[in-house]
Every structure is written in C-alpha cells, then in structure tokens.
Amino acid sequence: MKALLVAEYRDGQLLNSSYELVAFAEQVGTESAMFLVGSDSVLPQYEGTLYLADSSKYSEFNPAVHKQLLLDVITKEQPEMVVFAHSSYGWDLAPRIALALNAAQISEVVEVVDGTPVASVCNAKLRREVKAKPTRLWSPCKQEPLA
C-alpha cells in the first residue's frame, strides 16, 4: 500500500502537522510519498519522494490550483490513500480531491485498528469504525484541533 501525504506550509514555515502524517504512515505500515506547496528553503525532513510546488508561484491558498497539482501527483504516484491533516487546509482540499477521484473521504480519523479507520462522533463521545466501499482510494484526516 502507498499513501500520499499532503504536507502544509504557511507564512514561510513548514507546519508540524506534516510530520504527524509521516508518523501516521509509519503507524499504518505503508510506504509513502509527500506533496507540498511550499518553499525549497524549508524542506521537510523526509526520506521519501517529495513533490514540491513553489508557493510563491501557486499561492498558499488557491484551492483550484492546489487541487490540480495534487491530482497530477496522484496520477503519477497511484496511491491507495491520500492523507491530510485535520486542519483548515485539509478540510478545504480533501473533499475536492475525494470528489475528483470518486473516492470516500473519512474525516477526523483518530486511530486505525486492524486496518479499519476509526473516527470520532458527537464531540468525541462516541467512536465509529468506518468502512469505505470499494473505491480507488480513501483519504483520512489526522486530528489536529484548531489552536
């Protein structure tokens, strides 16, 4: 299995949530590649393949452009899973990608048990195991509450 990790960059900084995605891929036991719209001046410490788009050219927030850049990388990498942070960037971009790929998006994944993503329900009072119906790809979001 391969996961494409969607790292985040803002105001000249790589966001730490990017490393949560690396930890997530390790936890799930999948190989990974990384996508980032950022800058080559602050590259993530990541050993896998990094697809870097220049944020000075593509802007830090431009959903239509970021969506297409990411879809291009997905076409090339053919991952089974695309992983976003559960953040304002992930909330905005993940549904666009899921719809374009005809894929299930599983939001706010807090753990993966025996390969099954577990999401939070009702203000974390309940948990639910989510089963994606056979589609090309599912895209969980790791939890990162707003500060």
């Binding site: 899921a98 309940l126 639910r128 195991e129 119906k133 599912w138």
Partner: peptide, 9 residues
C-alpha cells in the same frame, strides 16, 4: 462511498 460499520463508546 462509506458506511459506519460499528459505533461504540
């Protein structure tokens, strides 16, 4: 595209 297989506390 997805369903809740199980819900629990």
């Amino acid at each position: 595209k997805q369903e809740t297989a199980r819900i629990y506390f």
